[in-house]
Design a protein around this nucleic acid. Structure first.
Lengths: 138, 138, 138, 138
DNA sequence: GTGGTCTAGACCACA
DNA sequence: GTGGTCTAGACCACG
């Protein structure tokens, strides 16, 4: 099941470990991984993605640092219960910055306002916010 | 006037030249810089930001490579007329990827669906899509 | 093996990095380098050509910007899979401009129509268009 | 009449003076300018193109250096009788290099062999080789 | 004065 | 080991 979720593109400019972090966070954000779910072991995932185990370990460490996962000695790495660490103004500031960068890029790509609104609505359907109902997505 | 637009944070993880590229693109996308406007000269901006001129030059070269600006030897660097080179499916693909990453982050930040919609609408007001009315923003 | 492909003429008016870019693109276009092939490392090639590593890096960055190569941090620079990003009218416009300039030069060089046709046919045999058979040229 | 022939694009990466040189050579190659025809004066052309007269003078000097034009004191600059200065092997070598570069670019642009042949034939119709009939093109 | 190229050498991040 | 960033400083070409 994880093989369909955690993918990585070696040709991307984004570092492999960062791609992994993003993939796990996205899986959590979309409900494909839920609190308590176990992530594959470092060695397992390294073999599956044909990636250096150090790279996996680095990604897992970063995820734990962000509070997305917790690792329990001897049993593995698990999705953590959601906890919010940043203060609300800081949360919004980050979102705002990301949005500005994204929309600026969209303009330079030549997309129209309608294009952007449409894709935004689609993307919103793909994520599950905190209070959303909890049926796991296929 | 440019000193209020082109800023850079030396302590950021993002490379200086990339910050500059993003800043110029955003200024163009928001209408603060318009086609034909002249950017500060390499040396001028280098002095203003206390950055090495080569770093500015690298940013300007990247901008020209993306078609955002044109550099005229002997006279300076100018905002280019907008031209779209990518094909539409590719444009949308990039937007979609950016949106997924952003919304996934938003979820992990602990923001609600309403928060995101609100910030999105605000951000949309700050950019000027092709065909928008052309009054320059203050 | 690369020493026979990537050459540079320091006395030429063309910038060194641009010569390198052209050499790599030609090697790809003629099938001497194929998607997935690894280019020499920056330092390696710098030593071989007795050129500053920064100059090589600049060429590689330009190639990546054009989508000819992909650079993977920690592992090297590789020939990218071919992907076309420009729109067809733009593609043709560029070709047309190049042809006009070239033929105009040919006339001024004193060459005949037959000379040009003959050299054109020869040159066409040296490149491999998309979809051509894939045997690597010696 | 020259206003329709000698055009220049300030946004191009090619230096203005080089664009002028190319434009004159192309006009000669296509028969729009013939041996003996007078070019506009430096000041005249500078005014017409709103370009620095030094730039025009530089282009005219380069053209004279290449033997494309001759300047007669007090009367102006004229298209020279065609004379070939390079040796034939050198001529062909230059053409070959230009063709290789052009076709390599065409491949990277994503054009097909048929596209290139078609555009080549079109471009050949636009130039007038040495022995061609001499009716001036409109 | 403008941008562009190149060198030299330091330092960082990724795998 | 790989590529990427940044600085410092020299030199060139264009207008």
């Amino acid at each position: 099941m994880t093989q369909s979720i955690l993918r990585v593109d070696p040709s991307s400019a984004e570092p492999l470990f960062a791609q992994l972090v993003a993939a796990v966070k996205r899986a959590v954000a979309t409900g494909k991984l839920r609190p308590g779910d176990k992530l594959p072991s470092v060695r397992e995932l390294a073999a599956e993605l044909t990636i250096n185990p150090n790279t996996i370990a680095k990604a897992y460490a970063a995820l734990e640092g962000e509070g997305v996962t917790v690792s329990r000695h001897g049993s593995g790495t698990f999705v953590a219960d959601r906890r919010v660490t940043l203060r609300r103004p800081e949360q919004k500031r980050r979102l705002r910055e990301g949005l500005d960068a994204l929309l600026s890029d969209a303009v330079h790509l030549g997309l129209s306002e309608d294009d952007v609104r449409e894709e935004f609505d689609d993307a919103m359907k793909r994520v599950r916010f905190e209070g959303d109902a909890e049926e796991r997505k296929p």
